[in-house]
C-alpha cells in the first residue's frame, strides 16, 4: 500500500515542510562544497585572488610522490587503528550481547559514555598518560626501566584513533550480535563444536553485516581525522587532513587544498560504495 501523498495534492504544506531544510542544505552545505570544487580547478593569481581556470594542475600535484605517500600513510594509520578496534571491539561486543540484562545495560553505558565526552578532553587525557613524565613512563621508571618515547609517534596516533573510535566499532557489532538467532549457537555447541570454533564458524559469519558497518564507521572518520595526528603525532605522522589544513591556514594555497579535500571525499565515497557492494552481494542468494 502506497502511503505517501503526492505533493501536488498539498503543494503548500509540502513546500513549507521541505523548503527550510532543503534551502539550508543547498545554501550552507551544497553551495560551499561547490565553491571548493570550483577552487580545486583554480590557480592562484597574486596574493589573494583565485582564477577558476579549469586546470587539473592541483590534482596532478596531489599525485606527486610526496603527497601520494601521505595518502598511503593515512590509509595505513586509519587501517591499523580500525584493525585494532576490531580486535578489541568484537570480544567486547560479544560479551555485552550475551551478558545478563543488568550487566548488559551497565556495559553499554560504559562503552557509550566516552562517546558523549568531549573529543578534545579525551585526546588530552590520553596524552597525559603517554607523556614522558606520564603514568605509563612513571610505572616503567618505578620498575627501573628507561622511559619510552610514547607520544608524538605514529603508534601514538593509532592508539589515539583507537581510543576515540572504539565505541563506533563496538555498537554496530553489538547490534548485529543482539539480533542473532541463539538457537544456532546452541545447535553448534550441542553438535560438539567448541566455543572457539562456534565463534569463528557460526557467530562471526552471521555478524558480518554488523562487523562491516563497524569497520566503515571507524575507518571513515579515522581516515579524515585531523585532531589526533595533529596533537599526538610526530613530524612524520601527518595525515591528509593535516596537509589540507596547512594549505588553508599556513601555505595559503587554497586551490591545492581544495583538490586534496575533494580527493579525500572521493576516497570516503569509494569506501562507502565498497561496503554497499559487499552487502549487495550478500543479499543476492
Amino acid at each position: 500500500m502506497e502511503k505517501r501523498v503526492d505533493w501536488r495534492q498539498a503543494p503548500g504544506p509540502f513546500a513549507a515542510l521541505l523548503g527550510p531544510p532543503l534551502g539550508w542544505f543547498l545554501l550552507f552545505f551544497a553551495a560551499p562544497l561547490a565553491v571548493v570544487l570550483a577552487y580545486s580547478f583554480g590557480t592562484n593569481v597574486g596574493v589573494a585572488d583565485i582564477a577558476i581556470s579549469g586546470t587539473f594542475a592541483n590534482y596532478a600535484r596531489a599525485l606527486e610522490p610526496v603527497y601520494l605517500a601521505i595518502f598511503l600513510k593515512s590509509f595505513a594509520i586509519a587501517g591499523a587503528a580500525t584493525f585494532v578496534c576490531l580486535l578489541l571491539g568484537f570480544p567486547v561486543a560479544l560479551a555485552i550481547a550475551f551478558a545478563q540484562p543488568r550487566v548488559r545495560t551497565l556495559l553499554l553505558v560504559l562503552v557509550m559514555l566516552p562517546f558523549w565526552t568531549n573529543l578534545l578532553i579525551r585526546t588530552y587525557a590520553l596524552m597525559t598518560v603517554l607523556r614522558d613524565e606520564g603514568l605509563v613512563n612513571g610505572a616503567l621508571g618505578a620498575l627501573g626501566l628507561p622511559p619510552l618515547p610514547l607520544l608524538y609517534t605514529n603508534g601514538a596516533v593509532i592508539l589515539g584513533l583507537v581510543y576515540v573510535h572504539l565505541p563506533f566499532t563496538v555498537l554496530p557489532i553489538y547490534a548485529s550480535l543482539d539480533r542473532l538467532d541463539r538457537s544456532l549457537i546452541e545447535a553448534s555447541l550441542d553438535l560438539g563444536a567448541s566455543h572457539l570454533a562456534t565463534v569463528f564458524r557460526v557467530v562471526l559469519p552471521l555478524a558480518r553485516p554488523g562487523i562491516l558497518a563497524g569497520l566503515l564507521l571507524t575507518f571513515i572518520p579515522a581516515l579524515g581525522s585531523y585532531l589526533t595526528p595533529d596533537l599526538m603525532g610526530g613530524p612524520d605522522s601527518q595525515m591528509i587532513a593535516n596537509v589540507i589544513e596547512r594549505q588553508f591556514k599556513r601555505a595559503n594555497d587554497w586551490p591545492f587544498g581544495a583538490a586534496l579535500a575533494f580527493l579525500l571525499m572521493y576516497l570516503t565515497f569509494l569506501a562507502l560504495a565498497a561496503q554497499g557492494l559487499f552487502r549487495g552481494r550478500r543479499a543476492e542468494p
Binding site: Y226, L264, T268
Partner: peptide
C-alpha cells in the same frame, strides 16, 4: 558522511 575537514574548509 562527508569528512569534517572538507566541511571545515568549505
Amino acid at each position: 558522511v562527508v569528512p569534517e575537514i572538507c566541511m571545515g574548509v568549505a
